[in-house]
Amino acid sequence: MMEHLTHLRTNDGSGWLGCGINSDKEGASTLKTNQSRLLKRYKDYNDLVNNFHLLPTASIFKLPDGTFSSEKEVLVAFYNIPPAALKRIFQDRRNNHCLNECPYCGQPGKPDTLDHFMPESHWPEFAIYPDNLVPQCENCARKKSNRYYSLTKSACYFIHPMYETALSQVGFEITMQIVAGIIEYKPRIHLNGSANPVIMRRIRQHIESLEIPDYIVRYCRNQHAELIDAINKANAMSAPFDFKLHCERLLESERVKAGIAEGKTMSSFPNWACAFYHALIHSSDIINFYLSQFHLPPNRPSPCVPVTSTLLYP
């Protein structure tokens, strides 16, 4: 259940635009000259996003020969190298969103990237429009890139988490099995609740366009590597390590972050971490696989000699 971001919508970009116009950055006069055009265009944004099945109209700065006027470079520059006031706003949108997973894909962790829903490379007029800038993980920003509309499927590739709540109904399940001594992962993606066929198709296209199942498998392998590393460190120190309890605590931590009540039974989870550790803990084969990795090293390391702390900066 990826979190929707409808609370971030402003339906008004005048404040952000004003920060650019009132700055001393080169190009501020160009923004002021085009202020009325930009504000008028901002009013078109809702229709452009909501009419996901229609190819959006071209940028107001696109010339008949297919190139762009000089305003494009100015607007993109105000996003890439913003003046101080606008930079603070971008940082606030990027960092202060209270998200614990990516709203596009559900990857655990705080999204640390701010990127455009309608690519600024095609629609530079929305380069600093608030409702076009979405907090997301780096993987989604890279995968989404400058893609927006699929001509073959006659629809937008992605779902805008500020405009629709469909992705908040998506949940994740992971199954694990040991094949030839290696753990294999199979992600399953659920839709919790009812949805009409149009929404179902859009969610499926969103998932396929971002290649979310592949990302989940990669995440599982990274988690596995971290667990093996912890086991190896315990082995090297000949230290006791309650592996299952360790995983149970990680699951509980993720459940708290996701707001899942203790003891609540779920068939799917809001992020990949919950799904991963739930699957691990509830599979005796997987638990036994990890337990088999514990051993005493043939040559126990010599104990470290304590050293006196040295003050580097008095």
Rank of each mutant, 00 (worst) to 15 (best):
P103S: 07
P314L: 13
F78S: 06
E262D: 12
G20A: 07
C274R: 06
I81A: 07
G259T: 12
I287S: 05
H116I: 10
P314R: 15
E211I: 04
Y277D: 00
P301A: 05
F52D: 02
N132P: 01
S145G: 04
N22K: 12
K144L: 08
R300G: 00
Q177W: 03
S29W: 05
E26R: 08
I286N: 02
P64N: 14
N288R: 13
H122Q: 14
S121W: 02
Y290C: 03
N299D: 07
I199V: 15
I89Q: 06
I287Q: 08
M176T: 03
F158E: 05
P82N: 11
E226M: 11
I189R: 13
A84G: 00
G171Y: 13
N222M: 01
L167N: 00
L311M: 07
T67P: 01
V305Y: 01
E26L: 08
Y219K: 04
R204E: 06
I60Q: 08
Q293H: 12
Y313D: 06
P314N: 14
M200V: 15
H190P: 00
I89H: 02
T308F: 07
I81L: 05
Y290G: 02
E101R: 11
T175R: 14
V217Y: 00
N95A: 06
I21C: 09
Y215G: 13
F90W: 03
Y129M: 13
T6G: 05
W272V: 14
D229E: 12
A166L: 10
S121E: 07
F172E: 06
R255F: 03
V74M: 11
K110C: 02
H224R: 08
E125R: 03
Y163L: 09
C98K: 13
H246L: 06
F126E: 02
I159H: 07
P270I: 14
T10Y: 04
Y148K: 06
G181N: 12
